[in-house]
Design a protein around this nucleic acid. Sequence first.
DNA 1: GCGAGCATGG
DNA 2: CCATGCTCGC
Lengths: 262, 262
Amino acid sequence: MKIATYNVNGINGRLPVLLQWLKESSPDIVCLQELKAPQERFPIREINAAGYEAIWKGQKSWNGVAILAKNMEITEVQNSLPGDPEDLQSRYIEAIIGKIVICCLYLPNGNPYPGPKFDYKLSWIKRFKKRTQQFIKMELPAILIGDFNIIPGPLDVHKPERWENDALYRTEVRKAYGELQKKGWLDSIRSLYPDEKIYTFWDYLYKAYDRDAGIRLDHILLSPYISSRLQSGGVDKHVRGWEKSSDHAPVWIELETEDQPV
Amino acid sequence: MKIATYNVNGINGRLPVLLQWLKESSPDIVCLQELKAPQERFPIREINAAGYEAIWKGQKSWNGVAILAKNMEITEVQNSLPGDPEDLQSRYIEAIIGKIVICCLYLPNGNPYPGPKFDYKLSWIKRFKKRTQQFIKMELPAILIGDFNIIPGPLDVHKPERWENDALYRTEVRKAYGELQKKGWLDSIRSLYPDEKIYTFWDYLYKAYDRDAGIRLDHILLSPYISSRLQSGGVDKHVRGWEKSSDHAPVWIELETEDQPV
DNA sequence: GCGAGCATGG
DNA sequence: CCATGCTCGC
């Protein structure tokens, strides 16, 4: 089973690219971030026509997340991150698909540091950790997947020194990312490629993609009750080079299907 | 020789459509209106690549006119309508191409009526008539071509009654258009099709093109010293139906070449 | 650089 | 309905 995440940076402007990628990549489950469209302007007809069911949480202009699945029922569990009823940003949607909990997230960017946006990022992470701990306690096969807006370490950034005081690389958020792993969450892509520079985002500015001046922000974390099923994974880097592409590239993993011989 | 006019409604947004039409229609001389681009953002490279030389007068956001020619030298004579140095709108450009004077115009819309915009339209027309009289007096082969923002008569509008108090159809402007003809200027398209409903513009709103609820605004007027060479003409109406088309359609005529037997 | 809204003009 | 140019966020 192939599971992917793609920060589309505008679902409607990105539709041709998204459909092209779905066609060539054929993932079973896809998490999307930065829809940048209100609930009623999600292109459900075109997504259906491409063979996918979907749930989504839209928002005008900003944020917005969705979960797509091919030939599988999607049971929505949450369409916002629990823990703060005043938080109206559409950054989290959670579903059960074929016994797996899928948590699709678009974690706040947090820049500029320091400031209220960074504080919001930290409090969002705190609420998120609380939620993820519930899956650990319940011993559930669960996947945390999406744009974390966290650069985990020096292998995940072209020039680490340029990012020291950036909210994506601050020690506080990298520490939080490390703590998730201590709790048992496996960074699937890094576990498959422990020593390589890997990026999932290249800025539109300064010809960042041409220079391969990227960062790794999009992650797929596996709970201990599913991580043994990890078989392969990667970044569809070439998609970033397409005409009218997002500034992110899709990231994917393959999981062994449950009823396969061990 | 084929001479055409096309109100492109944004030269840069319209470039694919314009190039497609140039390719299929292959006019020798083309007048464009509503470039909606400043002088430095006219896509001269792409126009050259399509086989055309060009002169143009740009303006940020609004107006803007150009003259294109294939395999002919363009000698710019005016890049604004004489008679009012305070008028900064880019609505007129005049050139000599192969002994013919080409006056490319984008006459003010004039709505709402009554008001200062309508007054501006009338004073623009007055200055324009003065200029055109000079060509008559000099007995020159000259062509007045472009978006006149004048509906000449009831054959040129789907529902005349809806336009009675519109600046495009007011008696003042229709009278001015009639006076041009009395001075010898031939409405080439109307002279070829004296009895037909002919439109060159269909509003983007209310599915005007589907309903054929159009108006005729784009005209090609010939001085007495060239009008005998008129052979054919028409409206490339189908272009209005293309994806991402302008709200106007191109209008063209064919002139007998000078050295042909009479 | 490139989304998305909004204002403005037609 | 559409094009431009502005602001904003990343």
